[in-house]
Design a protein around this nucleic acid. Structure first.
Lengths: 185, 185
DNA sequence: AGAATTAAGTCAATATGACTGACGTAAATT
DNA sequence: AATTTACGTCAGTCATATTGACTTAATTCT
């Protein structure tokens, strides 16, 4: 361990009261800005994506590999083009990560039957196992987060997250996510 | 525009039914894994962080700058050490980003009164304005996401996000986020 | 008063994941 | 036959992060 502060005091210095402009005006309703939700989203998402990291590190993989693995495992036989569309990265970016996953025996490519230009993507048995392991880590955190919510809480979370998407993107997302289709109000 | 697929069809090739192992077994209750929440979180967070990008690009800033700006604006007079703790990055990483923000007149550093080693961080007037502008972008998306949720929906979201954190980290987060303190169950 | 610790910063090298731009090849579509 | 699509590759770059070593100044501890 070198320089990094893992568990800091997190106590901003409120010692001297001469902040330049805070407390002085709040010109246009700034006090109503949803700072709490914004920050909670930041911290929650960081924790959420952090869980799989240790496991992935054992394979010399990173988050990019996780994302590819996840969506291939969830959409067996997906085309490279469609995967690029989901991840919104370039094929050059995908290329390196995908090659490493194929070389490691996590993902395999098969020629399309109807269209022989396609290299359809599948997880191998090992790859599927890894994908499920990582999902279970995230499942644990989600289950803890859902504890104590009122009835229908999970549905509310789902609706909230879906509505975070631009309206015209929602249909596509719902199609992709599948199990969320029951809240297409 | 070159190679990138911005609005793809997102329709995994379900054409050929010979997936290697899917639909064949589901050995250990995999069907109950919360794939929908996991994917919705991924897409929702991407949209959420994507909003400020265009504005930031005009200043030649990226997400790293946004995070620093946000937490400095929210915690005027914060110590460098505490900021490092919140962001969980090294001071070398912070160094470059912070220098650019200071050079651009977005953040200013002042010597601590009680401890002259400290370089307490404040947003300038310009910096504060930028921070608020970015927050308002995210506010818009959040408000759209909260539409149509039942009464107490926002509280449920807040509780969910807070419970995504490890229990021992929650107190610190609550202290930092402040406005969330009413749900410390 | 002297030693140890803390706050902040710097130099140097490296890794990861992304990007742009330009091309190439095979297969399908028009 | 011409065009488009699917996929891949070569080459260079950028943003953000890392590790490790070291310095300076100021505070705290003994």
């Amino acid at each position: 361990m070198t320089d990094v502060n893992f568990k800091p005091s997190i106590s901003p210095a409120i010692q001297d009261g001469d902040h330049p402009m805070k407390d002085t005006a709040l010109p246009s309703g700034e006090s109503e800005l949803p700072y709490d939700l914004i920050e909670l989203l930041f911290f929650a998402y960081r924790e959420f994506t952090g869980d799989p990291d240790d496991v992935l590190a054992q394979y010399d993989f990173g988050r990019a590999h996780h994302r590819v693995l996840h969506f291939v495992d969830r959409n067996p036989g997906i085309m490279v083009t469609d995967l690029l569309g989901i991840l919104r990265i370039t094929k050059q970016s995908l290329g390196r990560v995908l090659k490493q996953l194929v070389d490691a025996g996590i993902i395999e490519q098969r020629e399309g039957h109807h269209d022989r230009r396609q290299r359809l993507l599948y997880t191998t048995e090992r790859g599927h196992t890894l994908a499920v392991d990582l999902t279970r880590l995230q499942q644990k955190r989600l289950e803890r987060a859902l504890i104590g919510l009122p009835d229908g809480g999970e549905e509310i979370i789902r609706k909230f997250l879906l509505q975070m998407m631009d309206p015209d993107a929602r249909a596509d997302i719902v199609k992709l996510v599948r199990s969320a289709h029951d809240l297409e109000d």
